[in-house]
Design a protein around this nucleic acid. Sequence first.
DNA 1: TACAGATCTTA
DNA 2: GTAAGATCTGTAC
Length: 977
Amino acid sequence: MQKGDHLFLVDGSAYIFRAYHALPPLTRKSDGLPVGAVSGFCNMLWKLVEEARETAVGVAPTHFAVIFDYSSTTFRNALYDGYKANREAPPEDLIPQFPLIREAVRAFDLPCIEKEGYEADDLIATYACHAVAAGGEVTIVSSDKDLMQLVGPQVILYDQMKDKRLGPEEVKEKFGVYPEKMIDLQALVGDTSDNVPGVPGIGPKTAAQLLDEYGDLETLLARASEIKQAKRRENLIQFADQARLSKKLVTLDCSTPLDTPLDELFVHEPDGEKLIAFLKAMEFTSLTRRVSTKLGLEASSVEAAPVATTGALRGPDFDGATKPAQFVTAATSSLLPLSPVAHAAAVLEGAKPAPFDRSTYVTIRDVETLEAWMDEAREAGILAFDIETNSLFANMADLVGVSFATAPGRAAYVPLAHASAATTGDLWDEKGADDSVGPQIPLDVALSILKPVLEDPAVLKIGQNFKFDCLVMSRYGVTIAPFDDTMLISYALDASSSLEGHGMDELSERFLGHKPISYKELCGSGKGQVAIAHCAIDKVTEYAAEDADVTLRLWKTLKPRLAGEGLTAVYERLERPLLPVLMRMEARGIRVDRDILSRLSARFSQKAAALEEEIAELAGERFNPGSPKQIAEILFGKLGLPGGKKTKTGQWSTDAKVLEELALSGNPIARHIVDWRQLTKLKGTYTDALPAYMDGEGRIHTSYSMASTTTGRLSSSEPNLQNIPVRTEEGRAIRTAFIAPPGKKLLSADYSQIELRILAHVADIPQLKTAFQEGLDIHAMTASEMFGVPVEGMPSEIRRRAKAINFGIVYGISAFGLSNQLSIPREEAGAYIRRYFERFPGIRDYMDEAKAFCREHGYVETLFGRRAHYPDIRHSNASVRAALERAAINAPIQGTAADIIRRAMIRMEDALAEARLSARMLLQVHDELIFEVEEDEIEATIPVVKRVMEEAALPAVELSVPLEVEARAADNWDEAH
DNA sequence: TACAGATCTTA
DNA sequence: GTAAGATCTGTAC
């Protein structure tokens, strides 16, 4: 090698994992051998070899090598036995591909380098050092940060996926230090994936800053006592040796003995036939075509190479690459002494239920088989059940098929309404369809077999997000009972703001370590999406049966935790019984007057158009008032108005608050933009959008989510009927479109001040409790306590401020927030809060207790035992921590209110039935319930509804303040509210 | 086509 | 200052 030469070093092991994860899983050769990663690997390698000159690297290699990890034990394990100890085993279907990938490299006629006792990174470092010494240049094909220490004037990293080259400047940009200091930075930061410890509490940002200030690791450790931040100083002193060890672990070894000298890595013409023979054997048709075209060979004249495709080819090389000791397989374990811990782990691994195997799932196409499965369900007493439909709207979804599982791994799919693969708009499709998809049990026959089991009191049905399935099935005359819902179990256990969610795919990955086939993988997404009824039935079987299988396994994992963690009552009293109630509310829907909405749309659109003219006039040009960016350009740029605050992306904010202030200082354009926004918002979000959700009877069916808030509140979507406008007159007009059918009225019943009442109870504030008991004006009373002003003749501004403080308290008040809300200086807001705490010291005690409880347990509780988890409550960033503390203060209050209205809803239907009333509950808006009531039953219904709501906390909790409910009936929601 | 950000609606 | 969801713009893929 000499000056001008260019060496490419491909980090083969990293390449494999990128190829594996970049490609859709389960790519198999015709004999069933998984080859997805091999395919991705070959494509990437070919692309790199062929197109290096056109990439960001810009030169073609003169020397080339692909380098792999060989074994798990290296000199680093001698330094630190925890090294790479928490690496997970490679995916099952990837393992047989490791040897094939080495075959692939040889087929490309490229050197395939690996060495026992050394990691790929050390080999790469050594070759790079040799090449630099010889005056050559080096491109390392990898984006691994561990390799960044090698970057220098002659060495760059190349990220092929992103086609980006990383030189010293890019490293500096990414990590804040130049490559020479990467080792020190890594030593401080550590690396979770390799189990390099580093120094606790130091991340990349802090490490870069420290190295910038002190120069290098040793100097930093020597002068650690000078550091101001107490925690950081302590850690650097305490963990100095750990940092030194980490440094040794991350430092790459440039003196690896090389079996293949650098000069032998020179590039030569590949043996085209050998390569094509391999690619053909792998059945990579398009790559075979590309390669043969490029090399000017006729692919058909080359015979596929015999490639060993069994496990026999598994060499000693690959499993060590990532497998930690405790996953050593039976075959090798006899050679290695297992520690007791590793042994226990191996035993536990063996006790795990059968791994997921989609090939065992059954497609049921005849009555006898279906009956046999139902017998099995009766025998087992449990049945995980899932449906596939043609719509996500449960009120209009039709069944396409059903799946179920009776035991882990034992699952089946029953196609019921599949049609042939879609060709667009062909009239013959519908008739010819059934022939090409094979036999299906007629829907009514299948239902007659399923129904007795789904309704059998001795068979527990298990679903995931079961409200959807129950609702659809109810439209087929099936009332599923008894049941459990894994989504609700998970929610009762783990409602948390930082945990992702309670969807099946997430739960499966979290609790079963298994990634199910996603809907997207089955049906595609966006324009390419296909109806499930048109997907191949064998694919749908894998997908649908897997969902049932996963649901069953989740239930087995999660259900026992309820009792273990004392959450059975929450699940059985607040979650599960609400599901059928909400299901019926969604099924009923609420009547909406289409004409009212369209008249409002016309009115809003006319007014908005007029405003748009005036805005253009005032601005001197036309622009889009819907674009905050353009507004900022016009107002703060062209017109030179003073900007207020900035958004987090650095743009000038143009929110209503900023514009209101500009309007007050005499800028009519700001006022007009605010008004325009309001009108277009009302039109776009409500009057235009709502009619699209109406069904044939003029009713809208929202969907309630029982598991998407941290506090226990419900949420409503498609459409969201919990944010229908009420504050402005124009907005309120939208509520007049929500009506009752002839002969009926809408009844609205809402809790008055429920959260403040709960606060008065839990924080035990005598003045507040008395005020509520005596039915006083709570905000006026607060103002009077705080400012010493008599309630009689109190200025409205004083009361308004007290009201804002009361709300703020419930939200975990901060001076910043209150000053924002009231548009007063931060100091003044702070003074208010101090005075509030002086007058009501119990409030501060409550807040401190909530925070302390949360710090200790990681969660807070409502009066009914519902938990909201805040695992990051001890976050080191003070403002993040403060935000979590506010949430932890608010959650028990908001959550208790949510629990109370849930209890009311659960009891409501029986109470109405017992009173022989026909009122139907339609909507819930956090502290309000909306009913449809026969006109002549209104008088009788109101007291029943009020009683159920006001007594909803009893007998579990006896509040020391009364709950009050206001109820009113009218022709539309506006007047009833 | 998909996603994040800004804004606005509710309790 | 709490808890949500929808729409539109603008940009990245």
